[in-house]
Amino acid sequence: MIGFRLDGRSNVVPYLQLVEQVRRALRTGLLEPGDRLPTVREVAESVSINPNTVLKAYRQLEHEGLVEGRPGQGTFVVGSLAGPSLASHAVLRRELRAWLRKARAAGLEPEDIDALFGTTLHAFETEGAA
């Protein structure tokens, strides 16, 4: 079962943080279609936040077609964000680790790597769109 966390310092509004955590779990395969999300009550208690925030998050996920609420049973994952297969994830992860080792060996700090990746991704996407 997924566990939620709230980053009080983040600029992102709480309900969107929850939404993003579900999305990330879906992408990494931590959550699969058919899994049940924790109840609104369980999340409100464990994260210690207003249940309306959790409701908003679940509603947003439902709106995006990722989850479905079944009365009397709970909220279930119905959509998927996982890539083609988890296997390709594993391959990509291995290649990424190798590249990271090279970058660190070249003297880049994590912030530099982050900036490099961010700008390259951005450029790649805009090129792709054009």
């Binding site: 109840t39 009550r41 409100a44 208690e45 210690s48 959790v54």
Partner: peptide, 14 residues
């Protein structure tokens, strides 16, 4: 405090 407030949130949800 945290426990108290968490439980309160749970009651509100319930």
């Amino acid at each position: 405090r945290r426990t108290f407030l968490s439980e309160l949130m749970g009651e509100v949800a319930a």
